[in-house]
């Protein structure tokens, strides 16, 4: 049966729309205006059409930054999702340790992004940092300021430390929502621990895992403060991700038109991913 929707309720959103217009829509329109002009100073500008877009889309350094961004996002997902599930499976289900574990896991999520960068900058230093000194004492040459691999491993480890808790908390809530009857039925059938995970727990974690994967993908895709504070994008440009590339272009070089074109491309990528996120969530809720 076809279902009609009453769109009149959208009029109630009008006050929010006015606030959003001033905080987001008008600035976004300004960015669109910037993106078709070469702005030399506040009084001198030239219309260049779509030249900045052509320039950005064919820029090898941007392609490299996009590649690094995708590799980074998929790497942290490949680590954080299985690790988050494993930790959630090991967590206590009753008693005082539930609260203690949840609080301990939530702590990294409360630390501001730039503070995380500062913590890891000190923690991983090879001269005074606990992690850096320990790794070097084991005979491994580790220096995140001079080695590309060291910088990458440190940025990934930092993100894993900061955000795996989110995956754990989502998976834990999903696991707690599974009725005991399923476990009882599995016990009667003599199912192994792996079979319980594969056929009882994992299928019922699909919803929360979808949220976890998409949240972590979008968030890691926009990462800025942590690697900026930790490595400054180096050594070379090995940890320069898209947002830092954009900030350098817009603020460092004051290349406003080019940065505006880049911002719009970046915005379209995030918008498409957000739409996928929204569609999957609403469809899974309907299902």
């Amino acid at each position: 049966m076809e279902r009609t929707r009453n769109e009149r309720a959208w009029l109630l959103v009008l006050p929010v729309m006015i606030v959003v217009a001033f905080s987001a829509i008008i600035p976004l329109m300004t960015v669109v205006n910037y993106s078709v002009q070469d702005i030399l100073d506040p009084y001198t500008r030239f219309f260049v059409g779509t030249e900045w877009f052509r320039d950005i889309l064919r820029d090898d350094s941007l392609h490299a930054a996009l590649g690094r961004q995708l590799v980074f996002s998929f790497t942290v997902l490949l680590i954080q999702i299985p690790l988050g599930i494993a930790i959630a499976l090991c967590m206590p289900t009753r008693g005082i340790w539930v609260a203690i574990t949840l609080v301990a896991l939530a702590l990294p999520l409360l630390v501001p992004w730039n503070v995380v960068g500062t913590i890891w900058q000190l923690f991983a230093r090879q001269d005074i940092g606990l992690l850096g000194v320990t790794i070097n004492a084991m005979g491994i040459d580790y220096n995140y300021t001079g080695s590309r691999m060291g910088a990458w491993l440190t940025v990934v480890a930092m993100d894993v430390w900061h955000w795996t808790s989110l995956v754990v908390l989502l998976c834990y809530s999903g696991l707690r929502a599974i009725p005991d009857a399923y476990y009882q039925a599995a016990r009667i059938d003599g199912a192994s621990r792996w079979a319980v995970f594969r056929h009882v727990q994992l299928p019922r974690l699909t919803g929360v895992l979808t949220i976890a994967v998409l949240l972590r993908f979008m968030d890691s895709f926009m990462i800025y403060a942590e690697p900026f504070v930790l490595t400054g994008g180096g050594p070379g440009s090995s940890t320069t991700f898209l947002s830092q590339y954009l900030a350098t272009m817009a603020i460092g070089q004051f290349d406003v038109g080019r940065a505006a074109a880049f911002s719009l491309i970046y915005f379209l990528i995030i918008l498409a991913l957000s739409w996928v996120f929204y569609t999957i969530i609403t469809r899974s809720q309907k299902g």
Binding site: M29, V32, N33, F47
Partner: peptide
Amino acid sequence: NWMYWTVPTAIFFA
């Protein structure tokens, strides 16, 4: 004026 309008972008948004 601070928004640096151009005719093509004005038509686009309109």
